[in-house]
Design a protein around this nucleic acid. Structure first.
Length: 551
RNA sequence: GCGCCAGUAGCUCAGGCGGAUAGAGCAAUUGCCUUCUAAGCAAUCGGUCGGGGGUUCGAGUCCUCCCUGGCGCGCCA
């Protein structure tokens, strides 16, 4: 059993005997400093007191009771203002490794979600150009989050929302059309505010190669349509390929156009209007978002009759709600943060708890090379694509870097550093720990070491500080999963893995595994390492990073 | 002007619900390869947690006011 759960159960029982619940402010955690024991609680400071009782005296009472009834606990100390510090017997920790071996790839799996239906919608980049590095960050976060949520008892569906209606698409068609004409030798100026990237020229060149100069003879509207369709298809194919290369695969691709053409946007707007949540003013249709905490009401249909993006976004989320998700996770670029209040307002207006929508804002990525920031802009056609960056540094390194920061903090992505295979680049540090263990296993096999079944007897040989450090770290894996799932923050997994890898590397240096005389000790250590390797593999898999067997 | 996010070691960043002496990596200095992968380990150096006030047994964490940076504030998409 996990140390934290063990203490928690004992304290709960103890409080129940006194007629109380476990106080909400109770903390049970591994203290920062090892001299404060294995686990510490503040319960004596936060529990209900009678007059004249002080925390230290209460702690003494708890100590006496627990010592008497918990054989797994070796000692209890009272410290500072009233902390109770527990030290477990070695056998308690040794059991953690046995448990990890027993559960294998399921070690750390925990039912936080209780089968709740979750949708994760991410990337959803407009199909007007290749994915750049910022989209890559969103892709990594969304994919890893999906893996973590599935691992923690959530039923997850993933989706890419395709903005295939509206002005951006017309601009794309126009850009292709102009490049096509230029390629045909027509003297025509390239419009401002249009996509200038070379990929547009590639598309028109392909169109020219395929159809010749035929488009020039068509009415302009038809030609534009052809250009738009071709441009969108080519770009979308590129995006899908980039995502697959990045190990990201969405289950659903949801078309905005289908929503508009199918009349769902109109239906949603009519319902809002009928319910008094929208109103006509100055020839436009407005959503009463101020009723739900937004600063001002928002336009749904402009006086020229065109729908705003917000209108289709509401209809889209209406559709999500109808699909019965308990939680909708939207992953957006942080520059859209101003959009959150109105979207939450819309969710609430449609009768759902506003907390059912969780927006994760992913900050922009600063791509740095040679100590200088590389500017990114799709319109100007000057950017590093995700595919370029992956080709340069590898998918593993790119994903790990994206996932080793809180998603809403800025990220400096230094190409020169990420290319290095050094500790500047923690992905190798973690992977190396795994490869080292695998290598050791191969060597052991060559030496003819027979691997025994895991047993408490063998584990009892592991009593050094390095052993205990690994045991307690393994014990914390489940907590890390719970934290990452509850806060929707994959970066906790990266940090955990770096710590575990660090302990493994230290162990490897301090204890020479294969040269020892004692064959049982050797076997015990191999079992421990096997448990560690399993957790590293599980953790890396949750980040979508490979765990190589040799490096 | 209003709002959101950020400000922690020279650099890049962690720090669930307020807990004990604020952590990690890099950089710098110094040790460790006849032995399991040195893509490693150990040690040293490094801090007014942006600043002031407040809340309390206790604040990097909560409240408040400033300062700095990024972003957002449209009948744009």
């Amino acid at each position: 059993m996990k140390a934290k759960n063990y203490i928690s159960e004992k304290l709960t029982a103890l409080m129940a005997a006194r007629g109380f619940d476990l106080p909400a402010k109770t903390t049970i955690e591994a203290p920062k400093s090892a001299q404060h024991g294995d686990m510490a609680t503040n319960i004596a400071m936060v529990m209900p007191k009678e007059k004249g009782q002080n925390p230290r005296a209460l702690a003494e009472g708890i100590k006496a009771e627990l010592l008497a009834q918990c054989p797994e606990i070796e000692s209890i100390d009272i410290a500072g203002p009233g902390f109770i510090n527990f030290t477990f017997r070695p056998s308690f920790w040794q059991e953690v490794a046995l448990n990890a071996l027993d559960r294998g790839a399921d070690f750390g799996r925990i039912d936080v979600g209780k089968g709740r239906k979750v949708q994760v919608e991410y990337v959803s980049a407009n199909p007007t150009g290749p994915l750049h590095i910022g989209h890559g960050r969103g892709a990594a976060v969304g994919d890893s989050l999906t893996r973590i949520l599935r691992f923690t008892g959530h039923e997850v569906e993933t989706e890419y929302y395709l903005n295939d209606a509206g002005r951006q698409m017309r601009l794309l068609g126009l850009a292709v059309w102009v490049r096509y004409q230029q390629a045909c030798g027509v003297e025509i100026e390239f419009p401002e505010d249009c996509y200038r990237g070379d990929y547009i020229k590639d598309i028109s060149a392909a169109l020219l190669a395929e159809k010749g100069r035929a488009l020039l003879d068509l009415p302009e509207e038809e030609a534009l349509d052809l250009c738009y369709e071709r441009g969108m298809k080519d770009i979308l194919d590129g995006i899908k390929k980039d995502l697959i290369d990045f190990r990201v695969e969405h289950q659903h691709w949801f078309s905005e156009k289908s929503l508009v053409d199918g009349g769902q946007v109109e239906a949603t707007l009519n319902r809002l209007l009928a319910e008094g949540r929208a109103y006509e003013k100055d020839g436009a249709l407005w959503f009463r978002s101020t009723d739900h905490g937004d600063d001002k009401d928002r336009v749904l249909r402009k006086s020229d009759g065109l729908l705003t993006y917000f209108a289709s976004d509401i209809a889209y989320h209406d559709n999500k709600i109808a699909r019965g998700f308990d939680m909708m996770v939207d992953i957006w670029g942080a520059d859209h943060h101003g959009y959150v209040p109105r979207m939450k307002a819309a969710i609430e207006a449609m009768g759902k708890d506003r907390e059912a929508l969780q927006v994760i804002l992913v900050q922009l990525v600063n791509l740095i090379q040679g100590g200088e920031q590389i500017a990114m802009s799709t319109r100007a056609g000057k950017f590093e694509t995700l595919a370029d960056v992956c080709a340069e540094v590898g998918v593993d390194a790119a994903r790990f870097i994206f996932l080793s920061r809180k998603s809403d903090s800025h990220l400096d992505f230094d190409l020169d550093v990420v290319k290095q295979q050094s500790m500047d680049n923690p992905v190798y540090y973690v992977q190396y720990a795994h490869a080292r263990i695998c290598s050791l296993m191969r060597k052991a096999e060559e030496q003819g070491v027979e691997l025994p079944e895991p047993s408490a007897g063998l584990m009892a040989m592991l009593t050094t500080p390095e052993d205990k450090a690994l045991f307690t770290c393994l014990d914390a894996f489940e907590d890390t999963m719970e934290l990452a799932a509850r806060t929707l923050s994959p970066h906790h997994v990266s940090y955990y893995l770096m710590e575990l890898a660090g302990l493994l590397h230290r162990y490897y240096t301090v204890h020479h595994i294969l040269s020892g005389e004692d064959q049982d000790l050797l076997r015990a250590r191999i079992l421990l390492f096997r448990a560690v390797a399993g957790v590293v593999r599980t953790g890396l898999d949750l980040l979508g990073v490979h765990a190589p067997e040799r490096m």
